[in-house]
Design a protein around this nucleic acid. Structure first.
Length: 797
RNA sequence: GCCGGAGUGGCGGAAUUGGCAGACGCGAUGGACUCAAAAUCCAUUGUCCUUUGGGCGUGCGGGUUCGAGUCCCGCCUCCGGCACCA
């Protein structure tokens, strides 16, 4: 009987579903294992990135189950977002219909991969029973001052007439039409993630995460220690605060800079000589795209006509307006020290401003600004001090006089969650002319999207065009009020979905705290590296918030993170627009899901990216077919030959393979686990070629099937059943290897002279060192190399 | 510019603690089977030489060591992330 993967795969997928094999309940008597693959956007078709992701996740679900864990592996849909809305703009089909359709197609494909989930817990964030809890979460944050509205510059595409999320701006261009993106000021909702900046930084230390993801988050949070101090504007009553990480260089300040958006700017220029020039500059800075502003790094600015007084030495320095200073970081104003900062150097050079070095550069220094360490110079009481001491000394000096203090700054900004979009969670707020911002009462949730005629955004959410949605009675005073028409960033949805899995049909709470307590944290989270900062940071923030609300025990949601590399096709990352997508469906037909899964495991280290190669699936298919033929007796006739040596050896090899596969799965090197199984199948087929014993073959096959069960589950289950082994394979325990069998009686001793291999000889494993040395010295191939004195060690492996 | 990662056959990759470099697979070549093909099976497959053996070989240049793909110093190249963050 040939290996009929199509029939077998359909049969077992049905069986696992009907038997509820992978549905689990909370069970305090067993160790739990909460295993989650990042939920996908329902694009309609799974691609090779999904296949890789779910193959790893499914392997773990099945393996950990065999190891006796109570394994929860759920699946859901990140089903709000742009593609459905774009499709609606194009075709007029409601995003909900489009999305549900995509979900059911994609769910079918995931099932055809043989990946098993507890589907009772499925979540889809676009459904009101899910997103009402986004609205609840928003209100909880609002009540605690962690959700607030303010006017802020946002990314704006002048061609599409729409706001873009940061992640939709690629190298300063609109992702959809490649138009340079500019900033526009709009009233926006923010979540105050910056309140948690220090905790988000500190708690990274306890996570079993890839180092590079931790590093990226650390950089993103961007803690810096410095000093904030006040500067007087000469001959006025105005003053402003500056922030610097190099207060030790304050004696080198030769000018000061205000960001164009700095509130003091208006007061300084109003009615002055430079007013028109300054206004023109500010206007240009506001409208310029990121690309224009950074064009060839050229620094531009306008002199305000005012001077500031450097508090450390009383020197008067000119105040400029320049767009290389950002309003969003620090105080939006800087002391400029060209001797120690390259940007200040460039600006000073261009505008003919003095440069004073306050740190002695090393001998032979020919560069511009010197930003390194060295003794302070030209700095009065700091002279001779190294950077660290000089910093401490000057901060002390500022603090003694009450004009400055040591401070900490973060690069992390508050999370802008407003989107002028239809297909997202409506923000549950209304604005009343009398009461101002008023939350929608919780009992009125969910605020549901009304249907609209036109989904095209025109600088405001399509919801703003639906009068009966917008105009409501104020929940507080009953007077006329308007609903918020923006929707939430879809990253809000994904920042807590893993809690909803604990009880996805809960109608009274976002999630059941007791069930969540049992399952949290995730023991394994698997996904793409592209989420290293956004999703993985937001989810940490929301978890910490829920912890502070006493709804969650843990402070970190994802104990262990695995980020898989990206699958590429020769010629770059797979994407529909490039037309280089390899569809998994074709392989379900041509090679079967098991061969496809196995190739994904085999293609290379899971952390690395990989280049897709169709022929690779031929290889894993051939391997599975060979296993099939050996297990079904089609490969070779077995005899009752009882040759103890060969029998014991092939069995011992099976146990050694088991040892290797087990440790490879534990350390996430699935490629070598598959290689070990292939190597073993070669050894077994060599054994069978000579005519092996039936019982030996049967035991070897039993072990192979147990090992293959998490990797190629359909084939393994079918052969298990046909072989008449007990029960369903998925419910068997992962086997233990026999230490006696694994131990080798004889080993190959490699003899090296001066690090070069000169001979190999088979010896007994318990050979003494002296014997080994004597033997090695006596070897014909070794003797000629031993002319002089030798220092040597015996290695026996 | 800063941070992180990686360079090994024709290709994907292996070598887990400094100890047989190239496991396993793909591709290729030759053979068996076949009227033929496919499938399958067997063999070979880093490179060079004076081939029962030996030299060279893990991006480049040094170093440590009996011994280095692995450790140290200095470079080069590629990939990813952040980027006028004071």
């Amino acid at each position: 009987m040939a290996y009929d993967y199509q029939t077998i795969e359909a049969k077992w997928q049905k069986r696992w579903a009907e038997d509820h094999t992978f549905e689990v309940e909370e069970d305090p008597t067993r160790p739990k294992f909460y295993n989650v693959c990042m939920y996908p956007y329902p694009s309609g078709d799974i691609h090779m990135g999904h296949v890789r992701n779910y193959t790893y996740g499914d392997l773990l679900t099945r393996y950990k189950t065999m190891r006796g864990f109570n394994v929860l592996s759920p699946m859901g849909w990140d089903s709000f977002g742009l593609p459905a809305e774009n499709a609606a703009i194009k075709t007029g089909v409601h995003p909900r219909i489009f999305t549900e359709n995509q979900i059911s197609r994609m769910r079918d494909q995931i099932k055809r991969l043989g990946a098993v989930y507890d589907w009772r817990r499925e979540v889809a964030v676009h459904r009101p029973d899910y997103y009402r809890w986004n609205q609840w979460l928003f209100l909880e944050l609002y009540d605690r001052g962690l959700a607030y509205k303010k006017n802020a510059p946002v990314n704006w595409c002048p061609k599409d007439q729409t706001v873009l999320a940061n992640e939709q701006v690629v190298d300063g261009l609109c992702e959809r039409c490649d138009t340079p993106v500019i900033k526009r000021d709009l009233d926006q909702w923010f979540f105050k993630i910056t309140d948690y900046a220090q905790q988000l930084l500190d708690d990274l230390d306890g996570l079993e995460w890839p180092e590079r993801v931790v590093t990226m988050q650390r950089n993103w949070i961007g803690r810096s220690e410095g000093c904030q101090f006040t500067m007087q504007v000469a001959d006025t009553e105005f003053s402003f605060e500056v922030y610097t990480t190099r207060p030790d260089t304050a004696f080198g300040m030769t000018f000061a800079v205000l960001a164009p958006e700095h509130p003091l700017v208006e007061q300084l220029i109003a009615g002055g000589e430079v007013e028109s020039e300054a206004r023109a500059y500010i206007e240009r800075a506001r409208n310029a795209s990121e690309i224009e502003r950074l064009a060839d790094g050229d620094k531009t600015g306008v002199f305000t006509g005012f001077e500031a007084i450097n508090p450390v030495n009383g020197r008067r320095v000119p105040i400029y307006i320049a767009d290389y200073v950002l309003m969003g970081y620090g105080t939006g104003a800087i002391m400029a020290v060209p001797g120690q900062d390259q940007r200040d150097w460039d600006f000073a050079r261009k505008y003919g401003i003095d440069i004073i070095r306050t740190v002695q550069p090393p001998d032979g220094w020919e560069g511009d600004a010197y930003t390194g360490d060295g003794p302070a110079i030209n700095s009065e009481f700091l002279d001779g001090l190294e950077m660290v001491e000089a910093k401490a000394r000057i901060i002390e000096w500022f603090e003694e006089r009450g004009i400055g203090k040591g401070t900490v700054n973060f690069r992390l900004r508050d999370w802008l969650i407003s989107r002028q979009r239809y297909w997202g969670t409506p923000i549950p707020m209304v604005t009343c002319s009398d009461c101002g911002l008023v939350p929608v009462p919780r009992e009125e949730l969910p605020v549901i999207h009304p249907d609209v005629e036109d989904y095209a955004p025109e600088g405001r959410s399509p919801l703003a065009g639906v009068d009966e949605f917008v105009n409501v009675d104020c929940p507080k005073c009953g007077g006329p009020a308007q609903r918020e028409t923006d929707t939430m960033d879809t990253f809000v949805d994904s920042s807590w979905y893993f809690l909803r899995y604990a009880d996805a049909s809960n109608e009274t709470e976002a999630f059941d705290p007791d069930k969540a307590r049992y399952w949290m944290p995730l023991d394994q989270y698997i996904g793409g590296i592209e989420h290293a900062v956004l999703h993985l940071l937001y989810a940490r923030f929301i978890t910490k918030f829920l912890h502070d609300m006493d709804m969650v025990d843990v402070v970190e949601p994802f104990a262990k993170l695995f980020t898989q590399g990206m699958i590429v096709l020769a010629g770059g990352k797979m994407s529909k627009s490039k037309g280089n997508v390899v569809a998994p469906d074709e392989f379900f037909e041509s090679h079967g899901a098991d061969a496809l899964r196995l190739y994904h495991l085999f293609i290379g280290p899971p952390t690395d990216g990989a280049v897709w190669n169709d022929n690779g699936v031929d290889g894993t298919f051939r391997f599975l077919d060979r296993v099939w033929r050996m297990a079904t007796g089609e490969f070779a006739e077995t005899t009752e030959r009882d040759e103890t040596g060969a029998d014991r050896e092939v069995l011992a090899d099976a146990h050694r393979t088991l040892q290797k596969v087990t440790s490879d799965i534990e350390r996430f090197t699935f490629n070598t686990a598959v290689a070990a199984l292939m190597e073993y199948s070669n050894a077994l087929s060599a054994y069978l070629r000579e005519g092996g014993r039936t019982e030996t073959l049967r035991e070897c096959v039993r072990l192979i099937l147990l090992m293959l069960s998490p990797m190629a589950p359909h084939l393994a289950h079918e052969l298990w059943e046909r072989g008449g082994y007990d029960g369903m394979l998925a419910e068997q325990a992962w086997p233990d290897w026999d230490p006696d069998l694994v131990r080798r009686d004889s080993v190959t001793m490699v003899v090296q002279v001066n690090g070069k291999v000169r001979d190999r000889v088979g010896v007994s494993a318990d050979i003494s060192e002296a014997e080994a040395e004597a033997l090695a010295r006596s070897l014909e191939k070794v003797r000629p190399w031993l002319e002089g004195v030798t220092v040597r060690k015996v290695i026996a492996r």
